[in-house]
């Protein structure tokens, strides 16, 4: 996965971080303070394989992430990982879905242009004949109050 560069961004004012993901991959990400509000009534839908590699995205996913569909398919879902998200949140996600249970959580996602958007995410394992074959994730508009709580809580989880 490519590192982000200032040319990708919608603003010259950004914070640089190096993220290390669960598979050991490192990525330099550049985050701005520009928020894209979740549009009313929309849902972001995606499906990944067992390794979290994106297999399917809907139009809202493309619009909100700032990537094209071609740029997203085949990439790990952590292409959206924002440096403000504590890794513990995602460890909990994987632990839950691998037990064949549904996971819910509030997530700050990183856009291609360095901006961000908050979502209320649900991830479920797709179980066929007793085996998990993929994961489906649906993101919807979050409650502003819940987002405010997460903005206080998440920095304490690093």
């Amino acid at each position: 996965m490519q590192d982000m560069t200032p040319q990708d961004l919608a603003s010259d004012d950004f914070q640089e971080s190096v993220l290390t993901f669960h598979d050991g991959t490192k990525r330099t990400v550049l985050a701005t303070e520009i928020e894209t509000k979740f549009p009313d009534g929309c849902l972001i839908v995606s499906q990944t394989d067992l390794d979290g590699v994106i297999k399917h995205v809907n139009k809202s996913f493309v619009t909100m992430s700032g990537f094209t569909e071609d740029e997203l398919i085949g990439q790990p879902h952590y292409i959206l990982r924002h440096p403000d998200m504590p890794p513990a949140a995602f460890a909990g996600l994987w632990e839950t879905v691998q037990k064949k249970e549904k996971w819910h959580g509030y997530v700050k996602n990183l856009r291609k242009d360095g901006g961000y958007y908050w979502v209320y995410a649900t991830v479920i394992p797709n179980v066929r004949n007793g085996e998990i074959v993929s994961y489906t994730s649906v993101r919807r508009k979050p409650s502003a109050n819940k987002v405010a709580e997460c903005m206080k809580l998440y920095p304490t989880l690093f």
Partner: peptide, 11 residues
């Protein structure tokens, strides 16, 4: 159909 069922489950 299974994808649709999974979607409804997430909702």
């Amino acid at each position: 159909a299974e994808f649709l069922i999974d979607l409804i489950d997430t909702l």
